[in-house]
Structure formats: structure tokens, C-alpha cells
Simulated scan of single mutants.
Amino acid sequence: MRIRAREPLQVYWNYQVHHLAEDEVVKGGLAEHLADDPRVEVLDGTEATGGTIAEILAWVGDDTDRAAQAREAEAGREKSRSTLLAKLDEIINAD
């Protein structure tokens, strides 16, 4: 998930004070924490858990953070797809 601050913000999250400038984009846990705040704009949600393999890989692109998020979601499924897990591992380990 990614959000954009609509105004300068000072927020407390994960035992720290975070200062966000206007139009600053953040992702991950802080973004999820702020998603319901009217002072931010949600740029994209967490789409890692559903869809076809092609849809998930399109959402991931070459973003290692998204690949890790999608891998965690897929591994948590009752019937995870080994081909998807392998492709996500390739993206995560591509350096």
C-alpha cells in the first residue's frame, strides 16, 4: 500500500514520530496505519492476495517490496501456487 500526504503531517507510529512533507509518498506499515486518515490520499491498496498469477505479477512488476508482500500472502493460502511462489522469489532475489 502507498499513500500521499495531502498536507504536512506529524504522526506517531511504531514507537516513533514521523514527519511527512506535503505530497510525500510512503509505503508499507506506516501507509496502512494512515490509510483511513482524511489528510492522506491512498494511491494503491494491497492487491497481493487475490487474482490470477498474471494479475498478481502485473501488480508486483519489479518491486521487491510488493513481491515480498505477495509471496507472504500466497504462502499463507491453504493451497499456495508453487509457480507463483517461484516467480516471486525470482523478483525478490534479483539483484
Score class of each variant (00 low, 15 high):
2 R>T: 02
2 R>V: 02
2 R>W: 02
2 R>F: 01
4 R>G: 07
4 R>F: 06
4 R>K: 13
5 A>N: 03
5 A>I: 03
6 R>G: 06
7 E>C: 14
8 P>H: 03
8 P>T: 08
8 P>V: 05
9 L>W: 05
10 Q>T: 14
11 V>P: 02
11 V>S: 05
15 Y>T: 10
15 Y>R: 12
17 V>G: 04
17 V>A: 14
18 H>S: 10
19 H>P: 06
20 L>I: 09
22 E>G: 05
22 E>H: 01
23 D>W: 15
23 D>V: 07
23 D>K: 14
25 V>L: 07
25 V>Q: 11
26 V>Q: 00
27 K>P: 04
28 G>T: 00
30 L>I: 09
30 L>S: 08
32 E>W: 05
33 H>S: 12
33 H>E: 11
34 L>D: 07
35 A>V: 09
36 D>R: 02
36 D>N: 06
37 D>L: 04
37 D>W: 03
38 P>F: 08
38 P>S: 06
38 P>T: 05
39 R>P: 04
39 R>A: 14
39 R>I: 09
40 V>W: 05
41 E>M: 01
41 E>C: 02
42 V>H: 13
44 D>Q: 06
46 T>Q: 11
46 T>P: 10
46 T>S: 10
49 T>E: 12
49 T>D: 13
50 G>C: 07
51 G>N: 07
52 T>A: 12
54 A>G: 04
54 A>F: 01
54 A>E: 05
55 E>S: 03
57 L>Q: 00
58 A>H: 04
58 A>Q: 11
60 V>A: 07
60 V>G: 00
62 D>L: 04
63 D>W: 00
64 T>Y: 05
64 T>D: 15
65 D>E: 15
67 A>V: 13
68 A>L: 09
69 Q>W: 02
69 Q>R: 11
69 Q>M: 09
70 A>S: 06
70 A>T: 01
71 R>V: 04
73 A>K: 08
73 A>N: 00
74 E>M: 10
75 A>T: 12
76 G>H: 08
76 G>S: 10
78 E>F: 09
80 S>R: 07
81 R>T: 10
82 S>Q: 11
82 S>Y: 12
83 T>P: 00
84 L>I: 06
85 L>S: 06
85 L>D: 04
85 L>Y: 00
85 L>C: 03
86 A>D: 15
88 L>Y: 03
88 L>V: 01
89 D>I: 07
90 E>A: 15
91 I>F: 04
93 N>W: 08
93 N>C: 03
94 A>K: 08
94 A>F: 03
